[in-house]
């Protein structure tokens, strides 16, 4: 640094003795500054490819829970327009609220699941997940008989036929916990548990820190690492704000029990596609529901990783 120079006041370093030399210095310094600024501008050149990253309207959009019905209507309308522009389909986008007296529970019969993965793909089709890169909410593990150690599970089995001898199959998706670790850690309250038990995400509020993804003990959350892609002819136009409307780059998503169907009274897509009838869904507060029957009558059912204290609303059970 300049302190090795004899002049004790570095301010005076700018006052050189000779005029000509000062001019040369000035030119050299200007050249450095100019090329430096040019290099900075060039460094930012990739930003030219930035497409509809955000708009003032989107940037200033309010938090879900603070929107008035009018605000919401405006946002829904914007989403409809955007979807139509991008996919050429006019969607129905609704903001479906939880119903009173309803708490959803899911039961999955491990005796019946054959590991065909139809639920995985029906889910993708229903919920408008990105096809490439691929986002899937359900993982099916092929487990050797006699163990529930997930580390022994095979995620990538590609057998000629399922089910195979000496294995059982364990589909895992968001467990819709009563004490969700993901909700607790979110720094912006962008994810929360609604009163029907579904943990939802405001895709327009998430900052993409992925803390929830680290916190989830079930590998249920997925991140949009880049712009999601959905072929136009595979878009599901029946959409919900907190559900399957198309997501954007840099936000989290996960299974929401097909809000767009279940909050309208229907079964989730994975239930309706399961060829083995292994998937059961319903209102646990209704004693007549299938899930109430299961929790009442089946002897053994498990909450996955009970020891982590998340208390899932997703139960695995066995016949007999």
């Amino acid at each position: 640094m300049s302190d090795s120079s004899p002049n004790p006041n570095p301010d005076s370093a700018q006052k050189p003795p000779e005029h000509g030399q000062s001019r040369r210095d000035f030119l050299r310094t200007s050249a450095v500054v100019a090329t430096g600024v040019a290099a900075l501008a060039a460094a930012l050149a990739p930003l030219r490819d930035l497409k509809d990253f955000t708009t003032v309207e989107k940037f200033l959009q309010k938090y879900y829970k603070e929107m008035t019905p009018q605000d919401m209507e405006k946002v829904l309308d914007r989403i409809r327009r955007e979807v139509e522009a991008q996919y050429g389909v006019r969607p129905t986008v609704q903001d479906l609220k939880p119903m009173n007296g309803v708490e959803f529970v899911y039961c999955l019969n491990l005796t019946r699941c054959i590991g065909c993965r139809k639920c995985v793909h029906a889910c993708v089709a229903e919920n408008n997940q990105s096809r490439d890169p691929e986002i899937q909410y359900i993982r099916v593990l092929r487990m050797p008989h006699g163990s529930l150690d997930l580390e022994k599970g095979e995620h990538n089995y590609d057998s000629e036929q399922v089910p195979e001898k000496n294995y059982f199959y364990m589909p895992i998706q968001c467990q819709q916990c009563r004490n969700p670790a993901c909700v607790k850690v979110c720094p912006t309250k962008a994810t929360w548990q609604d009163k029907d038990g579904i943990t939802v995400i405001d895709y327009d509020w998430c900052i993409g820190c992925r803390y929830c993804e680290a916190a989830c003990p079930y590998f249920a959350r997925r991140f949009n690492w880049t712009r999601p892609t959905i072929p136009k002819d595979r878009l599901n136009p029946n959409m919900a704000y907190l559900g399957n409307r198309p997501r954007r780059q840099g936000v989290m998503e996960k299974c929401h029990f097909c809000i767009q169907r279940t909050r309208a009274g229907r079964y989730p897509a994975c239930v309706e596609v399961c060829p083995a009838g292994a998937r059961k869904f319903g209102n646990v507060l209704d004693p007549e529901s299938e899930v109430s029957y299961i929790l009442r009558n089946k002897r053994v059912f498990i909450q996955l990783k009970e020891e982590v204290g998340t208390s899932p609303r997703f139960y695995y059970y066995f016949d007999v």
Partner: peptide, 29 residues
């Protein structure tokens, strides 16, 4: 179990007040 909707597949509306449902019979599977 089947009568309770627990064996085999049920599709349609879980909320029977909002719409109908279909229960597959044994030979469907």
């Amino acid at each position: 179990d089947w009568e309770a909707g627990v064996h085999g597949r049920v599709s349609g509306y879980w909320n029977r007040a909002m719409g109908g449902f279909e229960r597959k019979t044994c030979p469907s599977c």
